[in-house]
């Protein structure tokens, strides 16, 4: 019975919404840890957080769940896109999309693809080094020095530009995705939906802004 649900068009978008919200919850944790660089203490506080995240077994297990959630979100999106393309084999000659919907709500696939490309580069920059190839030694507290990798990486202007632009993609992806997930889960309410929508807009601007601020401030040498 529940298998039939997951195969239905509503079940498929249910999976998109649920994994989307899960990935959103990850963004909060990631952003919170990264904010530790704003102590501007040469990364000592940040490295405490990063070291904990890298070695706590519960976090490592959560990391596997996170990758699973991401892969499901991506694969489901691809399958849905293919299905949706099939549902309109002959397209319109003229479409006035702006008259009835926002461009970013119609471009979730494109924005998602940009984000996936960014994510791969981002993982190579930090995650692969942190988990596999090793970090450049320890800091004064004896914690693994992930901060040193950040300093090295964000010396490169192209990296900083790429990260900032990718955060714009993230902002627009969230701008549609956040409130859309609630609608998909059937959480539509006369009083709460307007609040969810406003909270979604605030979240979609705030989180990518904070993320973008990190490479920019480090590049400019304001965070040392």
């Amino acid at each position: 019975m529940s298998q039939g649900f997951l195969k239905s068009s509503i079940g498929k978008k249910f999976v998109m919404g649920l994994t989307g919200l899960f990935l959103i919850s990850f963004l909060v944790v990631h952003c919170f840890i990264n904010c530790l660089i704003f102590f501007n203490d040469g990364g000592l506080t940040f490295n405490i957080g990063a070291d904990f995240m890298a070695h706590n077994w519960l976090i490592r297990a959560g990391e596997l769940v996170l990758f699973f959630g991401l892969i499901v979100h991506v694969i489901q999106a691809l399958l849905l896109t293919l299905e949706n393309k099939k549902a309109r084999p002959i397209g319109y000659a003229k479409i006035d999309g702006a008259a009835n919907s926002s461009w970013y709500s119609r471009s979730m696939g494109l924005l998602g693809t940009l984000l996936l490309m960014f994510l791969i580069i981002h993982l190579v920059h930090f995650w692969v080094k942190s988990r596999f190839t090793g970090l450049p030694g320890e800091d004064a507290n004896g914690n693994e020095n992930l901060y040193a990798v950040m300093q090295e990486t964000f010396k490169m202007a192209w990296v900083v530009v790429l990260y900032a632009l990718s955060m714009i993609s993230l902002a627009y992806h969230l701008l549609h995705g956040f409130q859309s997930a609630f609608q998909t889960l059937g959480l539509n309410h006369k009083v709460y939906t307007p609040i969810i929508k406003k909270a979604g807009i605030a979240f979609s601007i705030l989180i990518p802004f904070i993320f973008a601020l990190m490479p920019i401030l480090m590049f400019l040498g304001i965070i040392k």
Partner: peptide, 22 residues
């Protein structure tokens, strides 16, 4: 009704809201 809808080959909703607007 959802099963019948899916069987007819309609696409999947992505909550763009174009339907409501039009």
């Amino acid at each position: 009704m959802v099963a019948a809808m899916d069987e007819e080959g309609f696409g999947n909703c992505t909550n763009t809201g174009a339907c409501e607007a039009e």
